[in-house]
Amino acid sequence: MARIELIAATAFGLESIVADELRKLGYENMEVQNGKVIFTANEEGICRANLWLRCADRIGIKVGEFEARTFEELFQQTKALPWEEWLPVDAEFPVTGKSVKSQLFSVSDCQAIVKKAIVEKLKDTYGISWFEETGPRYAVQVSILKNRVTLTIDTTGKGLNKRGYRALAGEAPLKETLAAGMVYLSYWKPDRVLIDPFCGTGTIPIEAAYIGQNRAPGLTRTFAAEQWPNIDEKYWTKARKEAEDLWQRDLPLMIYGSDIDPKALRLAREHTREAGLEGKIYFQKLPVKEVRSRFHYGYLITNPPYGERLGNTAEAEVLYRELGDVFSELTDWSLHLLTALPKPEIFIMKKWDKSRKLYNGRIQCHYYQFFGPRPPKKQNTDEI
């Protein structure tokens, strides 16, 4: 099997989580950069990364990287790359791009030049002058940052956040990859209770259940590279069997979601059914101020409304004060909240222990974590 350089693209702030996910999959040779993790694997690694990574956006094959300040440099160095190793004669290979702080700032021109360079290389390889592009899709991306060009082929297709359970979305939906990152960062364990008091359409509870059951998030979907002749079907079969074998379907969970929006709750229940988690997650219509629990050492993990996202700031502040009141009564719990509202400790009435900058779409947020005490080692952490 070949050694392939791959790029796991991710939202800013989630890079270290993706790197940790890759380590747990057994991949150690990696480099963490802003918005991506570069790692080395084989064909089977392409399959496993797509199936298992919860917080990455997509997996790309790194075809080449070089400096380019002129269109001629871009053309010649692109043409010199081994495109024939991946693109069969009938490949469909659209080119998309982006350019930041570079002399080659015209994205459309860069896309056209990369496309032409690949065509010229394939002409030399296959000895034909026209390509029908009727075969499998190999989406090429040209990314230029400070004159440094990176060329990749996407293996994923639809983003990795597309788990398959959320065909419908409510207002201001939280991306699945970000929700999974929030659960990871909380250090929640499946033997502890988890409540999302602003659950919306259920993304945080569902992602927590996937993590708790050790369920590969991509298990029920397909990927672009599954259609490629370059990757033998046996690798996909082996990777999916591994995921099926590691899925702890019958693991009991204590995951709850509440909200005041009946439409959002209907969607949450529908998404839970689509995810195959009916009977594992429980939802109820409940204002945040009425949230209670008879359990100890639990976790509140949530993405409350805030002015930039829903409603207005004054209304959001009322909800945060109510959340603070609830948290003060849950004396041995932890609170983990994602918000764009500054200084939430004013409303939570406690200084946060840890903060991390994350992006909810294009909105810059912070993930504030208020850690509760650890349960005694010999004490049962279930209900008293």
Rank of each mutant, 00 (worst) to 15 (best):
L174Y: 07
K175R: 15
K175Q: 15
K175T: 12
K175I: 08
E176D: 09
E176G: 10
E176R: 14
E176N: 10
T177A: 11
T177F: 08
T177N: 13
L178F: 00
L178I: 00
L178P: 00
A180R: 09
G181E: 06
G181W: 10
M182N: 07
M182T: 10
V183P: 08
V183M: 08
V183F: 06
Y184C: 13
Y184I: 11
Y184M: 14
Y184V: 13
L185R: 14
L185W: 11
L185C: 09
L185N: 08
L185K: 13
S186T: 14
S186C: 10
Y187G: 05
Y187I: 00
Y187W: 08
Y187A: 12
Y187V: 01
W188R: 14
K189G: 03
K189Y: 03
K189S: 15
P190Y: 13
P190S: 15
P190D: 05
D191R: 14
D191N: 13
R192G: 00
R192I: 03
R192V: 01
V193A: 00
V193W: 00
V193D: 00
L194D: 04
L194H: 04
L194V: 09
L194K: 05
I195H: 07
P197V: 05
F198C: 11
F198N: 08
F198K: 10
F198H: 09
F198D: 07
C199H: 02
C199A: 11
C199G: 04
T201I: 10
G202H: 04
G202F: 04
G202R: 01
T203H: 12
T203L: 15
I204H: 11
P205D: 11
I206H: 12
I206G: 09
I206S: 14
I206C: 10
E207G: 01
E207M: 04
E207C: 01
A208K: 07
A208I: 06
G212H: 03
G212V: 03
Q213M: 11
Q213E: 11
Q213T: 11
Q213D: 06
N214I: 01
N214R: 14
N214H: 11
N214F: 03
R215L: 15
A216I: 03
P217G: 05
P217M: 13
P217V: 04
P217F: 07
G218F: 09
G218I: 05
L219T: 06
L219Y: 08
L219M: 13
T220M: 02
T220D: 09
T220N: 10
T220F: 07
R221F: 01
R221M: 01
R221A: 01
R221N: 01
T222M: 09
T222Q: 10
